[in-house]
Write a protein that binds this DNA or RNA. Structure first.
Lengths: 187, 187
DNA sequence: TACTGTAGAGAACGATCGTTCTCAGCGCAA
DNA sequence: TTGCGCTGAGAACGATCGTTCTCTACAGTA
């Protein structure tokens, strides 16, 4: 049973890695089978279809994202620092070798319209993040709309870092966030 | 010859529409052939391969984007207004029925890593935009990095509007832009 | 009227996709 | 030992992809 659990995870991890690297359509079930080192039969025993595996990969990705944000916030003492920790987290991520943009944005762009399930998972993930930012903004005592603006900066940094290949998008976003926060608090 | 030119355009327009709607991998050459109303032979006479057609579609898309931005800026009297016109342009775009995010971000997410040509066209397009914003910021007499921040807001608004389905991302970006511009000019 | 060149319609090809099926091998109860 | 159930390896299937080829119809010329 623990065997099954680790094989399940191995499949999800392998699929996540390949999907993120090459895009979803470009990766066949056979490549996932090879990367995960399991039989095709087992693969289809764990996931009834590729669509189901895609959904599971995205769900797993939300957990990883949440954990990363939480870890970055853990060493921050104030709501303001926790907000800025988001951009520090992004900065570190953008500098990893295999960074290739936000997996949700990529998945949505590739098959969003054709796959309501994927569109919904991506939407939910972005909403969760917006709510997290909104909560911190409220703790800060700043007006609600600051949260929308700070989330926008984080989204923009991700696509800019991916396409332009400029990791300093994170520090630009951070600088803009500092300005917006200060103005909001001074009002 | 004008016959050929309009058929060429019909093909590009049809492909652009389908790629944007359904994603690139999901659209076959046969669907493009049908949508454009040309023969397969003609299609491959105009474009040697699907890759070439994809590149042409993206190049055309940069022209449309540039024209949209220019048109929005045309009715603005000052650099500041021309900067804010960007977000008004986005607002109108986000509210169109068939809006499905930035075509460059989508294409890059889908096959960026596997297609250097597509990655380069997307990168070049984003760089052009950043330069345009940078030029306006310079006319404004504001520090260089304001341009990076304003571009970030525009990028973030596009992905947020697409995934979350909230066209008001444009007005949030605009509000943030106003704040950042005012602070930059006051300094 | 016969000949030539071109273009349209779509059949055909080889590759690859997601998915299912076959079959040999192995652990294990009786 | 015999029979049974399960598993792994991968062959096989039908669909669809990008691309090419065939064949037919016809416009223009002598």
């Amino acid at each position: 049973m623990s065997e099954v659990a680790t094989e399940h995870n191995r499949i999800v991890d392998a699929a996540a890695r390949l999907f993120y690297e090459r895009g979803i359509h470009a990766v066949g079930m056979d490549a996932i089978r090879t990367e995960a080192g399991v039989s095709l039969k087992r693969l289809y025993g764990e996931f009834a279809s590729k669509d189901e595996l895609i959904a599971e990969v995205l769900r797993r990705r939300t957990e990883i994202w949440d954990a990363g944000i939480a870890a970055a916030a853990a060493s921050a003492a104030t709501p303001r620092e926790r907000l800025l920790a988001i951009y520090d987290f992004l900065d570190g991520w953008f500098r990893t070798d295999d960074f290739r943009g936000c997996g949700f944005i990529n998945a949505f762009g590739e098959l969003g319209a054709g796959s309501p399930a994927v569109a919904e998972i991506a939407r939910a993930q972005k909403e969760r993040f917006q709510r997290y930012v909104g909560r911190l903004v409220r703790e800060l005592g700043a007006p609600e709309q600051l949260g929308d603006q700070l989330a926008l900066l984080a989204e923009g940094a991700q696509t800019t870092a991916a396409i332009s290949g400029r990791p300093d998008a994170a520090s630009h976003a951070r600088a803009a966030a500092v300005t917006l926060i200060d103005v909001a608090l001074a009002a």
